[in-house]
Design a protein around this nucleic acid. Structure first.
Lengths: 168, 168
DNA sequence: ACTATATACTTGGAAGTCCTACAGTTGGTC
DNA sequence: GACCAACTGTAGGACTTCCAAGTATATAGT
């Protein structure tokens, strides 16, 4: 990692796959690996930017979601569904957000099984600052051109829809 | 997650960002989130396919790399560089691969700090079967069209190069 | 030749993800 | 009205990733 490689290791995977005679699988195998690596790079950047706020990207996503909702509150199962992560991941994130005073758990008015997540004023302030930092330092300079962003959004939305993430 | 959402939650993020007046950041924010979600879906599929082999994707990547190298052996630091993960991740994966009898650690001939990873015959057999499964069940039916795969490979290779993953 | 810096790997710990299993609630069905 | 299936959130465990620190070895500079 310190010294950049002289060859793209993912292009190397594709060449290896082709050399083995797996023509059909070669390019998609490279694409899958590239997506995983890209995610890793983007996540690392986000975490770096969020470090001064003592937030991780997972926790940022939770409070950002709350911040954009009406009333700045939401049942946990809805947060889980919208962020598309396992319920226990939300539990984990909320435990830490609550310890940091950014979010509160409140009983649901009509369903005693459910928990309502409520963004505190401190939480709101934190989201605003963290979002400004992410916008400036990550989203407005991802390293993708505007065309590439549009292409990615198109291709990945198709994929996610076919994968069953959402309907029509 | 059980019931598919009626709206794409990532498109929702983009709309929310635009509503807040963050025009420049909106589309890239959606793209970043889409990449993360897509990685999650692909990783889950890979893990599912590898489960019968008692392999995780991280461990598969290590033995696949060894399998494609001359002599089926490689120093750990080279594996770390090529897979672009932290050295400790390799240590972790190799501990488990070694326990499963798929890989062996051998001393390096000329550098006594270094460790040589050697794929065992059992390991080779396992890679071959796992690769066949991944090719059939994942890579040959990712849900991307051939054009989309080509676009992804082009866009993500540019990105990774700009991010410093490799030179020229 | 000797010291200082750099490299290779491991250990221990923090954080995230998921899964399984469980307790408490809810709600439709007979 | 009682009962069972489905749902909500959480505890515990496995796994991965990274970071920080430590040990051993190699290499460069004086």
């Amino acid at each position: 990692m310190p010294v950049p490689l002289t060859k793209d290791p993912i292009a190397e995977i594709q060449r290896n796959w082709e050399r083995q005679g797996w023509q059909q699988a070669a390019a998609p195998a490279a694409a899958v690996t590239a997506i995983m690596r890209t995610q890793q790079i983007l996540l690392a950047r986000a975490q770096e930017i969020l470090k001064p706020f003592k937030l991780t990207f997972a926790r940022y996503e939770v409070i950002s979601l709350l911040s954009l909702s009406r009333e700045r509150r939401m049942p946990m199962n809805k947060a889980s569904a919208l962020l598309q992560v396992h319920p226990t991941s939300i539990t984990n994130a909320v435990d830490r957000l609550e310890a940091a005073g950014l979010v509160e758990r409140q009983p649901h008015a009509t369903d005693r099984r459910a928990m309502l997540l409520v963004l505190t004023p401190r939480g709101k302030q934190m989201v605003d600052r963290a979002t400004a930092a992410l916008n400036e330092q990550l989203f407005e300079q991802t390293g993708f051109t505007a065309e590439e962003v549009a292409e990615l959004n198109r291709i990945l939305a198709n994929f996610r829809q076919r994968a069953g993430d959402f309907k029509a």
